[in-house]
Structures are given as structure tokens and as C-alpha cells.
Amino acid sequence: MGAGHAHRLYRSGNSPVHRLPPHCKLAAVFAFVVVVVSTPREAVWAFGGYAVLLAGVAATARIPAGFVLRRLLIEIPFVAFAVLMPFVAEGERTEVLGLSLSVSGLWGAWNVLAKGTLGVAASVLLAGTTELRELLLGLQRLRLPAQLVQIASFMIRYGDVITDEMRRMSIARRSRGFEARGVRHWGVLAKTAGALFIRSYERGERVHLAMVSRGYTGTMPVIDDVTASRAQWAHAAALPAAALAVCLIGRTL
């Protein structure tokens, strides 16, 4: 991962969506997801409308469909759960291709699948157009507790350092003829995990020392303040506003 300059979820670009301030995008995605989740599952066409809206955002951001679809694969475990529902749910049953399925289970599966996919797709678009660091600034701006933002930013900074340390320990183990095979070796792996924890903890202490030495007193100083104009908020609001319109039509019909 040494050469990459950004997270692999990010796709660099200079589209209007990329340029929006991160906190606007975060708020927009959150509002969009709330609208999607509150749509009654029977309004099937409304979900199609949401998908079209997201496709519009992807097109504006110049993110190819393949990029989004590949990253949607993360949803698979939930899909498996949704697929089970028609088989296990109670109630009225119906015949599909010779299988006896529960009607409420089918609706439930559709509900999970449609809402989940739309939510994940929206998040993929957010991550694809916003750098991790920007996301943190956005969260900070949205008044997420400072401690949580600090923890997240340290995770980003030290994730690679700790992974590297883990890799070196693994190489050292294997160089001395150890290969983890089966339960009997779990003890060794557990000790490695413990050692890694202690090393990380001690690094944390050293980092804290370095921070205190440069004047840290418990709160991070504001270095980059992200601001958004009215127009930018309006642009970001386009997605949830359109979704809300679709939702209201879906409810009244």
C-alpha cells in the first residue's frame, strides 16, 4: 500500500460532487438514507426512482457504474440474510417456481434488499467522491464529539504503522520456523496479539508525549475549517429533496 496516495474507496476527480464541502455531502447522504428507509415497502416504483437519482449523482460525479457495482459486493452477507427470509417467515404462503414461500417474508426480503442496496450505494458514492481526511473534517464540522473524530483520525494515521508492525512480527515468527496450523498454535498467535497491543499502547503513550510537547491540552486545534456557501448546501440538498418528493408521492398514491 506504500505508493497509494488515497484510500482505495476514493476515486479522485474534479466533478461538482467532488467539490462539494464534506459536511454537506454527509448531511445529504444521511437525509437521503432516512427518506429511503421511511418509504413504505409497497411503493416499489419509488425505489426505482431513488436508484435513478443515485445514478444521476454518479453521472455528475463521473463515477462509472462498474466502480459502484464492484463496491456494492460488500452487501453480500446481508443479501444472504434477506434471501433466507421468504423461507423462514411465518404467515400466508405462495408458490414461486414450485417453492412454497412466505408472502410477508418476500416483502421483508425486498425491503431489506432495496433499502440496504440504496444505502450502500449512496455511501459508496460518498466515499468515492470524498477523501477520508475530508470526511473527518466534515464530521468535525457536523459537531460529532471531538474524541470520536480524534480516534478515527488516529486510526487512519496509525493503521498502516500497526499493520506493518504485525507483518514484521509474522515474518520474525516464520523465520524461526513457526507456521500457524490448527488449534495448538493459537496460543502463539494470542501472545502475538498481546504483544502487538502492548506495543501499540506504548506507541500511544509516546505519541501523547509528542503532542503534549507541542502544546496539546486536550482539544485538537482547528487547522482547516471547512465552510459551505448557501449555494453549496442547496446543491447538496438536491438529492434528499428529490428523494423526499418521490417518497411523498409514493405515500399518497
Binding site: S153, I156, R206, Y216, I223
Partner: peptide
């Protein structure tokens, strides 16, 4: 008193070089 610690990974704790260099003066 500016202390430069031995392991730069301990000293550089911000996501980018610019923010890290800005940390001290911003804290002031």
C-alpha cells in the same frame, strides 16, 4: 522548547504533513 523525538512516527500524528506542521502553532 522544540523537542524532536527519535521515532518520527511518534512525532507525526496528523493525517497530512501540512496539518502536522500546523499543529504546534495552531495549538498556540
Amino acid at each position: 522548547v522544540g523537542i524532536v523525538f527519535q521515532d518520527p512516527d511518534d512525532q507525526l500524528f496528523m493525517p497530512t504533513v501540512r496539518e502536522d506542521v500546523a499543529f504546534g502553532p495552531a495549538a498556540a
